[in-house]
Amino acid sequence: MKLLELEDLHVRYGAVHALKGISLSVEEGEIATLVGANGAGKSTTLRAISGLVRPSGGRIRFRGASLGAVRAHEIVRLGISHVPEGRIVFANLTVLENLEMGAYLRRDRGGVGADLKRLFQRFPRLEERRRQSAGTLSGGEQQMLAIGRALMARPTVLLMDEPSLGLAPILVREIFSVIREIRSQGTTIVLVEQNARMALATADVGYVLETGMVRMSDRARALLESPFVQAAYLGGAG
């Protein structure tokens, strides 16, 4: 079933026409990846889905219902969580408080506690630092926190914007294995990455964005083997 569908989506920032008719769809349980150069519109696509920017045209449907007029904080309640570009952990809050904010809308204290426990088992570093201000974490720890924080909302769809950005190769591999784990637990993922090789190797479907448009889309394996993608996005990388 199509869980998330974008149809001819347009976004403008003032005079900048950032998205010029993006169409894509994500099946339940899949990882879809958006790859493309700087400024292609990857982040803008995610920001439109999570309600941070208002599309100037087109449609976004989640489980068949339009997200057109739904505000950002209400979209979370519907089951879409967004790990933003640059992580943006709340540096003035502790690690634990950041995770509590991730569970802001949840009222099932027991469930939240159990999820926290599981998260801390998976990321012991975060547990060690739970009382520490999130601003003191390393880049990799902050990324884990940003992902954990989004998961605390128990999303149906997780939007991830360049989770590997600026991390050492060993941490990049760690992040990608976390991504696969999240999917294996049934969460659908939309992954934006500059590291196209790893993203396409991990994802089920891929979309290549260029200047606000979808240049190509296919199964991720097929894109990985496409001469065009190899020349333009995989040349020399990884």
Binding site: E74, I88, F90, A91, E97, Y104, L105, A153
Partner: peptide
Amino acid sequence: TRTGKAMRAVSFHRDAASLMGIPV
């Protein structure tokens, strides 16, 4: 309190706070 923590989150970054479901 939950609201107090949300206030601090909003003061740090409004968009990131709304991504948590906080009604900014």
